[in-house]
C-alpha cells in the first residue's frame, strides 16, 4: 500500500520534477521552465514592493492572527534548501455537491414547472439546492453547506409543525 500515492518528495528541484513526470507517466514538465518560474517568485521575497499577487496575499494573510498561528507559513524561498525537502502533490478533481436542486418557496414547499406548490411536498438540504433550488448561485463562500442543511431542515420542520 502506498500511503501517499499523489505525493513526491526530493531534495532538489531536478529530482522532484523527474519524479513528478514518473508519477503521471509522461514528460510534460520541463525542469528549466519550472525552475525559472519558482526563482522568479522566490526573488520577490526580497522585494518589498512585488507584483506577484500571491506574495502580496501571503503578506496580507499574516496580518490575521489565526492565519499566522495555524494557516500561513512565514513567507520563505521555495528553493532554499534550509526550508526542507521539496514536495509536489498531484491534485485530482474531487466531486462533492450540486448547487441546484428542487425549487422551493420560502416555506420549503416544492414547486412544479408552473411555479405552483405541489401540496404537501417539501424539500430540504442539498436536494433543494440548500434552499430555493440554488441558494449559493454560481459560487459558495463555504461553511454554508452544513448550515444549509440545518437551515432548510429547520424551516421545513417549523412550517410543517405549525401547519
Amino acid at each position: 500500500m502506498d500511503q501517499g500515492e499523489d505525493f513526491v518528495v526530493a531534495n532538489n528541484l531536478d529530482d522532484l520534477v523527474n519524479k513528478m513526470n514518473e508519477l503521471v507517466d509522461n514528460s510534460l514538465l520541463n525542469k528549466d521552465e519550472i525552475k525559472k518560474q519558482i526563482e522568479a517568485r522566490d526573488r520577490e521575497l526580497d522585494n518589498l514592493f512585488t507584483k506577484d499577487l500571491q506574495v502580496t496575499a501571503l503578506r496580507g494573510s499574516r496580518f490575521y492572527r489565526g492565519d499566522r498561528l495555524i494557516r500561513t507559513a512565514k513567507p520563505h524561498k521555495i528553493l532554499d534548501p534550509k526550508n526542507g525537502p521539496l514536495i509536489a502533490v498531484k491534485l485530482n478533481i474531487i466531486s462533492r455537491k450540486t448547487l441546484g436542486g428542487l425549487q422551493t418557496n420560502l416555506s420549503g414547499q416544492v414547486l412544479n414547472s408552473d411555479g405552483c406548490v405541489i401540496k404537501g411536498l417539501y424539500a430540504a438540504g442539498e436536494t433543494a439546492g440548500f434552499g430555493g433550488g440554488g441558494v449559493h448561485g454560481y459560487r459558495a463562500l463555504e461553511g454554508s453547506f452544513l448550515g444549509g442543511c440545518l437551515f432548510t431542515g429547520k424551516i421545513v420542520g417549523e412550517n410543517i409543525r405549525t401547519s
Binding site: 450540486t98 448547487l99 441546484g100 436542486g101 428542487l102 414547472s113 439546492g129 433550488g133 440554488g134 449559493h136
Partner: peptide, 11 residues
Amino acid sequence: ARIVNRDRMWH
C-alpha cells in the same frame, strides 16, 4: 417537481 440550476455544481 421542478429542478432548477442543475448546471451549477461545486467540486
